[in-house]
Design a binder for these strands. Structure first.
Lengths: 348, 348
DNA sequence: TGTCTTTTAGAAACCGATTGAAGCCTCGAA
DNA sequence: TTCGAGGCTTCAATCGGTTTCTAAAAGACA
């Protein structure tokens, strides 16, 4: 591999001079020597070692992104946002699929620290787990000492810049919309209990019902895990219910779609027999039949702004305690409608 | 940041000894000193610099993956396969969204080379472009000199280990299946012309027709670009045709789904009025209505085997000229059926 | 001509590891 | 007593850059 030494030798200048020309230093170099260095670099096909540079300057221009699963459109869109912005700023992105397993996240974080990444972005909601949090705070302390940035795109229980959507509000608007349509028996498919996102969204559901003075029915709160299959299972549970709801709100689109497909297979007409609604507005949502009513979250933007915040945090233009809130929007499609008979779900 | 020097000092041993126990060298170290080093590393919260290590050993344990777009389920699945296997082998994965723009790919490759990645994986088909190829071969020559591996998951026109599916065969089986159903007027939505994958698939279509002695109708070959929107447009073109086909084969699922949705909007019943079929079997394919008949490609496996090959290539267990062929499988769902009236599409 | 700036060049330290070669004990054999 | 062999340790070179600090050359001015 050709090094800066070879370039310097060929150009007949010192290593220092070669470095200054090649790295765009502000230190003055005569035009004549500058040209010689550039010429030498070109003929030798010189490629400066980013590793060596990182060792001395202290920053790698690499960031890590911890996601649940790249095949989940939710995370895929976030990644794209992160990477697009990272590229424009000269950063490279390492993607880490943790499947939301605490031990996996911690292992990744240690490895990323070994590589001295300039920062880490946590996509998706935070894990609620004592041991995890303790370990997390310890490793993040090391990051902080290194002045590596920590950004999370969702509520996390450790210190980090947060780029958020108002999850409680998101669900409340969804429930408001369904109630506005005339529904009062609304099933809810929740996310996994140990995720902040799931907890917030469930709270939103409960608060919205309370605000409308609708009594909570524990039977209508179904446990899910944000996967398509969970939605399918929920459909079967709903089908087996004595008093069926007139609408189902899933806490993410993947489950909503699973539920929609499951209900259709069981003979329900959507939205005539039952309305189905999701959250997120992933790309698939518009392709299913009927197209899914949902709340659009700024997934791509979340990634982009997250990456932007990471850089600002590094340059001292933001504080670790800063929080950004991004807007969401209700998207009405065809999977929701007025209930066939008013209150049909409540009165047996 | 605490370095190995600090650990050595605290353990009261030389740096060399500290390095030997910390890096798992085979060089003998007495149990007593070994224990002291381990203890010191733990109390200091020592995190070995992977950068420094990479500088001296020459390998970074980082690989780059060049994809079109992370939000395309096709690439997302491949990435997941790559990353899952990479992790088990101690590699980190840098994801590069090139949108298949030649200049973007080249830029990424240069950057990845600056970081001295151990190898690069090209996901998806190769670009057909003279200038691109020339530049590509030049930069890949540098990779080769560094003994960095180059693997492509699809046919590329530069030297690399290839992990492939038989694209021609895939399409032929799809066409065979449609013809077996009784179709003889089959529209085809192609991919972008400058992609090997698109070219191969189109050839497969033409060869299959020829084999069945069906005359090619240029009107039925529609230009697409592998996006959902291209499928929508194709639906409108088909609708405007005087002699309508009885089946549409899209060269990927995204376009098939676009076409399916588009045709439904135009009032066609699928599959009664017209059969629609895709290629890839991305996850969405089973959620659309009707579920899409397609050919399942081993996307995850492609990524996994690709990463595996990269490592084998590095260790001399494979040659750059090696090619692996992975199996595909026809998946019949509900979007295809016998044509309503035999030969309706051919006789006006 | 001598002195004082201003430019520009280069020598050398440093980032944090790995590793080949050399050195030091200790023990057993001659 | 001397020598050789093994087992551990350590020294120091190395990877490929950046940057501080010193110094030389050139120009300005009296």
């Amino acid at each position: 591999m050709v090094s800066i030494i070879d370039v310097a030798r060929l150009a007949n200048v010192s290593i220092a001079t070669a470095s200054r020309v090649l790295s765009g230093s502000s230190h003055p170099v005569s035009d004549e020597r500058r040209a010689r260095v550039l010429e030498a670099a070109r003929t030798l096909n010189y490629s400066p070692s980013a590793l060596a540079k990182a060792m001395v300057t202290g920053d790698t221009n690499i960031v890590g992104v911890i996601i649940g699963d790249a095949t989940d459109p939710y995370f895929a869109t976030i990644i794209r946002g992160v990477e697009d912005f990272a590229r424009t700023q000269g950063y490279l992105v390492i993607v880490c699929n943790s499947d939301r397993v605490p031990a996996m996240e911690l292992r990744y974080l240690n490895t990323l620290n070994d590589y001295r990444v300039d920062g880490v972005i946590f996509a998706g909601g935070g894990l609620i787990d004592e041991d995890y949090l303790r370990a997390m705070e310890q490793i993040l302390e090391i990051f902080r000492e290194r002045k590596a940035a920590c950004v999370s795109l969702g509520k996390h229980l450790f210190p980090s810049v947060s780029v958020l959507v108002d999850n409680v509000q998101v669900i409340q608007e969804a429930v408001d919309y369904l109630i506005g349509l005339g529904h009062s028996s609304i099933a809810y498919i929740s996310g996994p209990g140990l995720l902040t996102t799931a907890e917030l969204r469930l709270n939103g559901y409960k608060m919205a019902l309370k605000r409308h003075a609708i009594e909570q029915n524990p039977e209508l709160i179904l446990k899910g895990d944000f996967t398509y299959e969970a939605g399918l299972r929920a459909a079967r549970v709903i089908d087996a219910l004595a008093k069926k709801p007139t609408a189902v709100l899933a806490s993410n689109d993947l489950m909503a779609i699973g539920c929609l497909v499951g209900l259709k297979e069981l003979g329900y007409k959507i939205p005539e027999d039952i309305s189905v609604m999701g959250i997120d507005d992933i790309a698939i949502a518009q392709f299913v039949d009927p197209p899914l009513t949902t709340v659009s979250l700024p997934l791509y933007e979340l990634g982009k702004v997250g990456m932007e915040s990471l850089i600002k945090l590094r340059y001292g233009e933001m504080k670790i305690s800063d929080t950004l809130l991004l807007p969401h929007q209700l998207v009405v499609r065809k999977s929701t409608a007025q209930p066939r008979t008013k209150n049909q779900g409540i009165e047996p």
